[in-house]
Simulated assay, not measured.
Amino acid sequence: MGDNGVANEGSQARPTHWLKLTVAYDGAAYAGWQWQPSEPTVQGVLQDAWRSITHEEPCFTASGRTDAGVHAEGQVVGVETTSTIEPRRLLRGLNALLPDDVVIRAVEPAPVGFHATHDALRKTYRYQVLSGPVPPLFDRKHVWHWRAGQLDTERMGQGGAYLVGRHDFASLESTGSERSSTVRTITDLTVTSRPADGGERIDITVTGDGFLYNMVRTIAGTLVEVGRGAKPPEWVAEVLASRDRGRAGQTAPPQGLFLVRVEYA
């Protein structure tokens, strides 16, 4: 038995089965989820830990490829494996090997052929803004610090309501996406606030059946335009109808974005 508390396995052939991992991470130190040869990534450190325990070369599928600096509370990862190590021991062993900013929250059996990307029904993201004159200290890598005046969260919520439903979100997509369709359904969008760290913490929480490249960050940048009074709430509907990325607000910085949860059948 190794130092991680998981017994090493032999190389004999075993039946294949699928597992579902729920992963949380602070993305500040990583160049995103997806493995890169010369940059630290969340997939990279997870693959290293998996190899050490199972002696397999894993083929992970993730519910979404978060970008550099983006965080997750409930990223879902699927893996096909022949390992006979029971899930609770895999959970303990992986967490013993992973760095402090990556945590496996659950390891569960998954249906045959489980694919974390294609099988996802809904995803929820949260974008965090800290509005106030004093820079955040402890949350500096987890919020967009907005220091250019107070944001009106009621108006932001009114603007966000225009995005709920099934729409073509081409105007809220950054270039570089490989998606064949820009039509998506947002089922819920809320804007809430509370006092925090010398200012006001504003959370923009969005649930939908899928998201385009940088879509949530562009939603945040667009709603901030409404919140600061530069645009009326109904301008969001005009942006949506235009299908023109140049009409929307800026792409908010990555550190404020969290993948909260992913739902499956």
Rank of each mutant, 00 (worst) to 15 (best):
residue 130 L to A: 03
residue 160 G to K: 03
residue 129 V to T: 02
residue 172 L to S: 03
residue 172 L to D: 02
residue 130 L to I: 05
residue 153 T to Y: 06
residue 154 E to P: 00
residue 172 L to C: 04
residue 189 L to N: 12
residue 140 R to K: 11
residue 126 R to V: 14
residue 165 G to Q: 01
residue 186 I to K: 04
residue 163 L to R: 06
residue 164 V to L: 11
residue 129 V to M: 05
residue 156 M to S: 10
residue 191 V to Y: 10
residue 142 H to K: 14
residue 137 L to P: 00
residue 159 G to S: 02
residue 140 R to Y: 06
residue 156 M to D: 10
residue 188 D to V: 02
residue 136 P to A: 09
residue 185 T to W: 08
residue 137 L to G: 10
residue 127 Y to S: 14
residue 188 D to T: 13
residue 136 P to L: 05
residue 141 K to P: 00
residue 177 S to M: 10
residue 184 R to K: 14
residue 165 G to W: 01
residue 163 L to D: 04
residue 136 P to N: 09
residue 136 P to G: 06
residue 182 T to L: 03
residue 173 E to Q: 15
residue 160 G to C: 06
residue 172 L to Y: 08
residue 166 R to T: 14
residue 163 L to S: 09
residue 174 S to K: 07
residue 173 E to R: 14
residue 183 V to N: 04
residue 145 H to L: 02
residue 182 T to W: 00
residue 190 T to Q: 15
residue 132 G to W: 05
residue 172 L to R: 01
residue 164 V to M: 10
residue 134 V to D: 09
residue 156 M to R: 09
residue 155 R to G: 05
residue 148 A to R: 05
residue 139 D to C: 04
residue 140 R to G: 00
residue 145 H to I: 03
residue 134 V to F: 09
residue 175 T to H: 03
residue 141 K to F: 13
residue 137 L to K: 03
residue 140 R to A: 12
residue 185 T to M: 11
residue 144 W to S: 01
residue 165 G to S: 01
residue 149 G to S: 05
residue 153 T to K: 05
residue 190 T to G: 07
residue 144 W to K: 00
residue 136 P to I: 06
residue 189 L to D: 11
residue 186 I to Y: 11
residue 178 E to H: 13
residue 149 G to T: 03
residue 145 H to N: 04
residue 173 E to A: 13
residue 127 Y to W: 14
residue 167 H to T: 08
residue 150 Q to M: 04
residue 149 G to H: 02
residue 176 G to Q: 07
residue 169 F to W: 08
residue 164 V to C: 11
residue 174 S to G: 15
residue 156 M to N: 11
residue 179 R to Y: 06
residue 158 Q to Y: 03
residue 168 D to G: 02
residue 147 R to H: 12
residue 177 S to Y: 07
residue 129 V to A: 07
residue 124 T to Q: 15
residue 192 T to I: 11
residue 176 G to K: 10
residue 184 R to A: 10
residue 149 G to F: 02
residue 144 W to Y: 11
